[in-house]
Design a protein around this nucleic acid. Structure first.
Lengths: 154, 154
DNA sequence: TTCTTTTTGCTACTCAATTGCATCTAGCTC
DNA sequence: GAGCTAGATGCAATTGAGTAGCAAAAAGAA
């Protein structure tokens, strides 16, 4: 069976081409990795996946991930272990479950498993602020992080 | 006017004594610092405050902060800058605004200002999960992080 | 093909946080 | 109050994610 990573290369190339920015091997590789994952991955995870097929520098992985965030393809999640993890943003029509609107309003909900440490995007959960902020405070972004046990580890 | 830090020393000592654990100078100093702050502070902030009065090793500050989290006096908050910040937990009857119940259920709401970077505990805001988790997922903790502009920076 | 701009890879660096270990001390026991 | 011991502290060295600088490489346009 073809690894998910390889299977996603054409889609990665198409997505990158659609941005109008340069399509390079490292960008294709990193994006293919993200496309093949259903959970948030760290730079190390990405590099490890890619290294099975090509060599890639860790600094390049960092830079490509940053770039993907900058062009709006991915977003970053701060982990409890001080490690950034990355995940694709919702693409209208691509992931039917996702609520694109909530992403545009900069609202995210994530789930991190206490046992396996994997982080998932909860696309059908919306953060809700119950109560009001101190006077003078203004919200631009809401992040909900749920911890617990995932289906695998339960 | 007496600095808040010095003013909080007796309260810090009393709180520590109540735990039944050892009451040491570093523990009193770190807890006094937390007691004198209305926002979440990093190890560096704590050390800087204490160094105005005594010398203290940074490693000790880390260890005391960890210990305070372990005994349930404080909790840690992961910042966007990969720095841990710490804040006191609600003490029943001590901070009337705080909802102790929500802390016992491991629910927190924090606000981080995009401009000044300060993080505050939102005691009168409760995270609300709007939607349901994937099947098999179980929640133990909910963290709501709001970003925006605080009253000062607005 | 040539040219220009951007990206990549490498090396060296930053900096929060951790580990190991010898020394010290809080609080108990006598 | 003196002695004892588990636990806490201070110091030095280390880890590990992420960053900066710069020369070489390559994408895409002309």
């Amino acid at each position: 069976m073809k690894p998910a990573y390889l299977a996603k290369i054409p889609q990665a190339q198409a997505t990158l081409r659609a941005t109008g920015e340069r399509v390079t091997d490292p960008r294709v590789a990193v994006l293919s990795t993200l496309l093949s994952c259903d959970h948030a991955v760290s730079q190390l995870d990405v590099a490890a996946t890619i290294e099975k097929y090509h060599t890639i520098d860790r600094v390049t992985v960092y830079r490509v991930l940053d770039w993907l965030v900058g062009v709006g393809i991915a977003h970053r999640i701060a982990g409890d272990d001080r490690v950034w993890r990355f995940m694709l943003n919702a693409q209208p029509g691509t992931h039917s479950l996702r609520k694109t609107a909530s992403h545009q309003l900069h609202e995210h909900a994530h789930f991190t498993c206490n046992t396996c440490g994997q982080t998932f995007c909860l696309d059908n959960v919306q953060p809700k602020v119950n109560g009001k902020l101190p006077t003078g405070f203004r919200t631009t972004e809401v992040d909900l992080k749920i911890r617990g046990l995932c289906a695998e580890c339960k």
